[in-house]
């Protein structure tokens, strides 16, 4: 969990650390509210049968996506999992593009060809959402290798869940990144459950990512993933390390998802009271209080809330009105020539 050094030092007597500054704090808040509202809307639209297929929400995990995205600069690359809505939105992808893809409309990010689990927006640095557990850790290594080879200063950030730490690709990628000293950051969102099973029941160590770090010569880092300031500061350090050519970081962020694993999961396997306990540490709630501690007015907070709500409402209406994808995209972009021809 967060350590004293994550919170200190503040202005004398205030107990508050103002290293982040008001503009970035407001951005961190806005981002978290935006992810929360957009995903809550996605869930509502699912209940109306307007979101099709599957979806995996990050409700309760917003501080990680917001904290890392706000620490990135243009050109940095995000590699996400099937639970990737939040990470995609956090890089600035319009809510309409994400909801449109979830609703399988022509205005979606990939016009309905990818779906919820494969959100990609390269112009925003979102290099894909990967639905095969572990696959994107080596891919992020490759993007980081390109940066190292070309002398580019961008950093590749790879987000994944606690369950990923038990698949082979995790270990191959960590070793590979460490040996090649690649500018890549591995971010484990430990929400305590590997799909429906407590991660502790299936993992040899208490902290599934951090307790493996030493095997790859990396620092053991476990942080409070529900505090966006802690995430942001930790991310900044990792970015600085990567950009300085000092290699990869592995960061385990402790968090909790408020919803089930996927839309089909009511999460009945959780012990009574656990969700309620974590909701007291809701990242959006924590951050709203943080803003107030720093003297941000209720009006300013309400203004942010209202403008986010408007973006989500407008996006929802635009998606409801959007057409379904045309059938002629069915066979486009199988190959680089734009088509699907496998023979002459």
């Amino acid at each position: 969990m967060s350590t004293a050094s994550d919170r200190a030092p503040g202005a004398a007597g205030s107990g508050l650390n103002d290293d982040i500054g008001e503009d970035k704090r407001l951005a961190l808040y806005r981002s978290q509210v935006r992810l929360r509202d957009a995903e809550q809307r996605a869930f509502d639209l699912f209940l109306q049968n307007l979101v099709k297929g599957t979806s995996h929400l990050s409700l309760g995990q917003e501080a990680i996506a917001a904290g890392f995205a706000e620490a990135m600069v243009k050109g940095d690359l995000s590699f996400c999992t099937y639970r990737g809505h939040a990470h995609t939105l956090a890089r600035g992808v319009p809510v309409e593009k994400v909801l449109g893809e979830l609703m399988q409309r022509d205005n979606g990010l990939m016009r309905g060809k990818g779906g919820s689990m494969h959100l990609t927006s390269e112009e925003h640095g979102v290099m894909g959402s990967y639905a095969i557990i572990g696959a994107h850790l080596p891919i992020a290594c490759g993007a980081a290798w390109r940066a190292q080879y070309k002398g580019d200063k961008d950093v590749s950030v790879c987000f994944f869940g606690d369950g990923t730490t038990n698949i082979g690709a995790f270990h191959e990628a960590l070793n590979f990144a460490a040996v090649w000293k690649l500018p890549v950051i591995f971010v484990c969102e430990n929400n305590l459950y590997m799909e429906y099973t407590p991660i502790k029941d299936v993992t040899a160590v208490e902290h599934p990512a951090a307790d493996r770090a030493s095997a790859y010569g990396l620092e053991r880092i476990v942080i409070d993933g529900n505090d966006a300031d802690v995430v942001y500061r930790t991310a900044q350090k990792a970015f600085a390390k990567a950009r300085a050519g000092e290699g990869p970081s592995l960061i385990e962020c402790m968090t909790y998802r408020h919803s089930g694993h996927s839309r089909a999961d009511p999460a009945k396997y959780r012990p009574e009271g656990e969700l309620e306990k974590w909701k007291e540490r809701d990242p959006v709630k924590i951050y709203r209080e943080r803003l107030k501690q720093f003297g941000v007015s209720d009006d300013k907070i309400a203004e942010i809330d209202a403008s986010v709500r408007k973006e989500v409402d407008d996006a929802t209406e635009a998606c409801k009105a959007a057409p379904m994808p045309p059938l002629d995209i069915l066979t486009t972009d199988v190959y680089a020539d734009g088509g699907w021809a496998w023979r002459n």
């Binding site: 290099m127 850790l137 080596p138 891919i139 490759g142 390109r146 070309k150």
Partner: peptide
């Protein structure tokens, strides 16, 4: 997996 994944990430970003 690291070999092919790294090749893909490099290919996606310009190599």
């Amino acid at each position: 997996q690291a070999i092919l994944g790294a090749a893909m990430g490099a290919a996606m970003t310009g190599l």
